[in-house]
């Protein structure tokens, strides 16, 4: 096994993994899962093809001392193996000019699954800070429309700045509670990269999964279902919804997809360029309660850190019928 961690110098990297215990019975190879959760994740970047080609950017960053490894399954993404004297991947002229975006690899997947095309009408319901919005703008070649919505004004500030920096011309930013998103038009495609308990980002931020109470989980799950219900009304017939969260808790993953199926969505099999595991249909929580969901949840995908040496993610694809 190759060591993929970055040199974090004297920075302490301590991770509290107790919150993952509840997944012991659903995660295959659980010990390896824990082992990977303890490892910091290397930075990765997405080339902003609206402004520069991968070849030209990589040449320039290599001159600055970056060692970059191309990601096999997508030509826009590179893993930073060494960063020279720069220390942080955003501290370059190239970053200031909007030639790239620092983005975790699993975060690239929801837009790839949604696959927005130039000219389409797309809604990004919880968009800030905009990694997926700007990636979709690249996929759409700056044509068509992305409505990038978020409820948090601070996060919208970051979204605005990223859109400006990357030169994205087809985005309207709105500030609304997604559950009550107002629109006089319907969309071809919707992305809900929902607010979640973020258990899957611990390799990026070891302070992320503080102990989440059952009450908070239920609250998040309710919010996520609310977003999905709203999305159903905002989609065209035959339109596609991609629902993603960077967490492992079935309450925020399969339970939300189960809700989507109940209100009329048809689950579509998620096909990924990396390894994933099908959604969990049945599991027992820490209180001994058994949860069982519609068989359709198995068409969604769980990405565990030890499968591809990435962060964690859950992705579902749903069609409005």
């Amino acid at each position: 096994m190759t060591d993929t961690t970055m040199d974090f110098g004297s920075k302490k990297w301590e991770v509290d993994l107790t919150c993952y215990e509840r997944y012991r019975r659903i995660v295959p190879d659980y010990d390896k899962f824990l082992e990977y959760l303890r490892r910091p994740l290397p930075y990765s970047i997405r080339v902003n093809t609206l402004k520069i080609s991968p070849e030209r950017l990589i040449k320039r960053l290599e001159k600055r001392g970056f060692k970059l490894e191309p990601v096999k399954w997508n030509p826009w993404f590179y893993v930073i193996r060494e960063i020279g004297g720069i220390g942080q991947p955003g501290k370059t002229l190239e970053h200031a000019l909007g030639y790239y975006y620092v983005q975790e690899l699993v975060s690239a997947l929801p837009p790839i699954v949604l696959d927005p095309q130039p000219g389409e009408q797309v809604l990004d319901m919880a968009a800030a800070p905009g990694s997926k919005t700007t990636q979709m703008a690249q996929l759409m070649e700056n044509k068509g429309l992305i409505v990038a919505n978020d409820v948090d004004i601070e996060r919208i500030r970051a979204l605005k700045s990223n859109i400006d920096r990357l030169g994205v011309l087809n985005v309207v930013i709105t500030k609304m509670d997604g559950r009550r998103f107002f629109s006089r038009r319907i969309f071809d495609k919707i992305l809900i990269d929902a607010p979640c308990s973020s258990e899957g980002i611990v390799r990026k931020d070891p302070s992320a999964p503080t102990k989440i109470s059952m009450k908070e989980r239920v609250k998040l799950s309710r919010l996520q279902k609310g977003l999905v219900s709203r999305a159903y009304r905002l989609l065209k017939k035959e339109g596609t919804l991609v629902y993603s969260v960077c967490t492992f808790s079935p309450e925020e993953c399969e339970e939300v997809v189960d809700h989507a199926i109940r209100i009329g969505f048809e689950p579509i099999e998620v096909k990924l360029p990396i390894r994933g595991i099908k959604g969990v249909r049945k599991w027992v929580d820490e209180r001994g309660r058994t949860h069982e969901y519609d068989k359709g949840v198995e068409k969604s995908v769980r990405i565990y850190p030890h499968l591809n040496d990435t962060g964690g993610m859950f992705i579902a694809k749903l069609k409005k019928i």
């Binding site: 700056n142 429309l145 605005k160 011309l169 087809n170 309207v172 709105t174 107002f182 006089r184």
Partner: peptide, 22 residues
């Protein structure tokens, strides 16, 4: 502001923060 979409967005959405880029 310059925007590559359509101007219908003005009427179709509420609470607009930005449209395209400055």
């Amino acid at each position: 502001w310059i925007f590559s979409g359509d101007q219908g967005v003005l009427n179709d959405f509420k609470k607009i923060e930005t449209i395209g880029i400055k």
